[in-house]
Design a protein around this nucleic acid. Structure first.
Lengths: 189, 189
DNA sequence: TACATATTGGAGCGTCCGCTCAATTTCTGC
DNA sequence: GCAGAAATTGAGCGGACGCTCCAATATGTA
């Protein structure tokens, strides 16, 4: 599975096609037939490289999120405003994958398999925010930092949803208002 | 359409069945067959009363939201903390329809038909929040009241999502933190 | 060169889906 | 009790879907 060079190329073609289709027709419109036709690949090849249609979709979303990560290496150098900016960029940027991300989160509300994947990435993000908050204010109790991170992320998700539904909504302005004073001043300078 | 008594009863039976099924199997599991079987009704009867499957689902969600409305008559007597409490009640209460609501909002991100319905109810709610904020602080410029209402609602939606995905999340506590000081004091008294 | 392993295409399986329609029955106002 | 509007039925249409299977082929390895 995916060890030969051609296999890796096929994998990329499939991911590109999935990405393109997600952008064009949304998650409901993406069918296996469409993916394989677009990638010019047989269904068998697809299942040789991915375990299911969802598997490919998740991978596309994962890569899109990683693309805006201010600290992909996890060196712990990202500030709170960096993280907020990255989230806003992901939500309001040109990539239509943000919609898919929110729709997947929605599916996670009833589908346990999806829920597991969504919750895992959510917790990772909460931790990133909490760490940044701790760096912002070293006096803060860790539990309080986590609580604030959860609220901020919840709020950001909701604001992102509003922004995607309502094109006139200025997400960045509202998101920055959620930052503690010092970080907000740095961000709006 | 729906003028005879039996028709109205059938309508109720269908809505009950839809509600029950949404709770039991989620929005993806609700099929027309299931609804009609559960309501002991032919498919034709269903389409005599509803224009589509989604039509019935929307109606169920609409009624669930109305059920927690602190001021269903629209008399303008609801305070900011009333509205927040109602939203929290809807999200964390026993009704599983909150999940459906969020999933529909997610579908609205790509499906224009769904988007129109979602956006309409969103705007109505923003207006309610903005009015309440204005009553809370009459000095506030109307545009600023609307802006704050949008942020609060966005944040509440995100917090609701977090609460539904993460059972340990204390939505009410975090939601109240979004209130202006005076309202928060009243609410936590 | 020989062989193991990976990759490929695509027909087709089984299933499910929302919805239509012509025929029939039930209801209501007069 | 009659006329006509409203309600009801459910088989079945047309199509979509994800995924399996497997013989044929390409690729890497020693």
């Amino acid at each position: 599975m995916g060890r030969y060079r051609v296999g890796l190329e096929t994998r990329e073609r499939i991911l590109s096609a999935t990405r393109r289709l997600l952008a064009e027709v949304g998650i409901e419109g993406v069918t296996l037939k469409a993916i394989t036709a677009n990638a010019r690949v047989g269904a068998g090849s697809f299942y040789n490289l991915f375990s299911s249609k969802d598997d490919a979709v998740f991978e596309v979303v994962r890569e899109a999120i990683e693309a805006v990560d201010p600290d992909p290496a996890g060196a712990g150098t990202d500030s709170l405003e960096d993280l907020v900016d990255a989230f806003v960029a992901f939500m309001t940027g040109s990539s239509p994958i943000a919609r898919i991300y929110l729709q997947l989160a929605g599916r996670g509300l009833t589908d346990p398999v999806v829920a597991a994947r969504v919750l895992r990435s959510h917790r990772r993000r909460v931790e990133r925010f909490a760490d940044a908050w701790q760096r912002e204010d070293p006096e803060l109790a860790p539990s309080e930092a986590t609580a604030r991170a959860e609220v901020m992320l919840g709020a950001l998700t909701g604001l992102g949803m509003t922004a995607l539904i309502d094109p006139g909504f200025d997400m960045r302005r509202h998101a920055l208002a959620l930052l503690p004073d010092a970080a907000r001043l740095r961000a709006t300078r």
